[in-house]
Design a protein around this nucleic acid. Structure first.
Lengths: 189, 189
DNA sequence: ACAACATATCTCACCGCTAAGGGATCGACT
DNA sequence: AGTCGATCCCTTAGCGGTGAGATATGTTGT
């Protein structure tokens, strides 16, 4: 059941069907890690590591790619995240720090810092709520809107490139599996 | 091809077959984000976000769970990572900082810090290589070995729990999809 | 009216990582 | 031998995050 990559039955399929896809004999870092565990602790079922190890490692590969794209527009991951959240919510509809905090899953302190940076660059405005003295309305400025509109296609191109090893159908499959995990962990909207 | 979660055809299947699995009408955070993009920018193909957004978000859910498990053993992610790498490599076979750096995909400065912390707690030893004056051999102490052996089952239990929403076959499927992405990004061993 | 609690934002100390660079050592080539 | 580039490990400054808590405002119940 938890058969791993070392015991692939070679189905004799040509691996040239998808250009750029490695053959079944090529092994990734996690394959090696699993082998080490099997050798050292054959009593343990380390199959969860096949998934979680690759999740972690994949984000380590992806993040620098994103970072490069953002840097080309004078941004970083955190700043783009705020700008994009405001943009997709409706470029003229303000959000509160609390909403941004929930959306990005970071602490309130992190949101404050992000907004400080963006505000000092003139990319967002912070306006006190007229109806609730505790609340602040965060909105995109003209410059902020223009910047996120410019960066967005580049960002999507980077994401597309990172996923290029999977067919559209496989990407959909992957997306659904991840969705099931998220729902299982309580990530309902 | 890039049909998204808003246009599910309800196949009328009972969702009670897998307990704990949410029905198809339940939507996660990324479903909502994709809806917002469709409404704001129907011209853009945001399907890569379905995958990458969920990858990012999943790690945000998983990491605190891991953190709790490690904290219960007086550890953190980074320290456990080093101890586990040494353990699975063979508990008496030393590794160099350069090897730990490649395995963890962090910079040399991060490795130095990690080793400083572990060494000051007596969990590892740093020994100058007898054959190469530049190299240091990092090895587990008795205490380090004992600690990682104790923490490992707990860590695996946490990983298993996080993945519980997927059947073993689905976990295998997910693992292979992630592996294909990693190989596409050059993560060969 | 007032107390008690809840909520929203911000502040501050600390943590782990990156990026850039420094010093030491090794290997290859003249 | 001597030099030059590569490699290894460490140092430092800065960045973005967390966690705890301060402050101000809103809400509820008596």
């Amino acid at each position: 059941m938890t058969e791993n990559a070392t015991t692939h039955g070679d189905a004799g399929n040509g691996t040239e069907a998808v250009p750029g896809r490695a053959g079944p004999d090529v092994r990734d870092h996690v394959d090696h890690v699993l082998d080490q565990w099997h050798a050292q602790r054959p009593d343990l079922d380390v199959s969860p590591m096949a998934v979680i190890g690759r999740l972690k490692r994949l984000t380590l590969f992806i993040e620098p790619e994103m970072k490069k794209t953002f840097a080309a527009h004078g941004l970083d991951r955190a700043s783009f995240d705020v700008l994009a959240t405001l943009r997709r919510n409706g470029p003229s509809t303000p959000l509160t720090p609390a909403e941004l905090m929930a959306s990005a899953m970071v602490t309130s302190g992190a949101v404050t810092q992000r907004l400080d940076r963006l505000q000092s660059r003139g990319l967002i405005t912070r306006t006190p709520s007229p109806t609730d003295g505790r609340v602040v309305h965060v909105a995109l400025t003209e410059e902020g809107l223009a910047l996120v509109e410019t960066a967005l296609p580049d960002h999507l191109a980077t994401e597309t490139r990172v996923l290029a090893a999977l067919s559209p159908a496989e990407q959909e499959q992957l997306s659904l599996l991840l969705r099931t995990l998220l729902l299982g962990l309580g990530d309902t909207f």
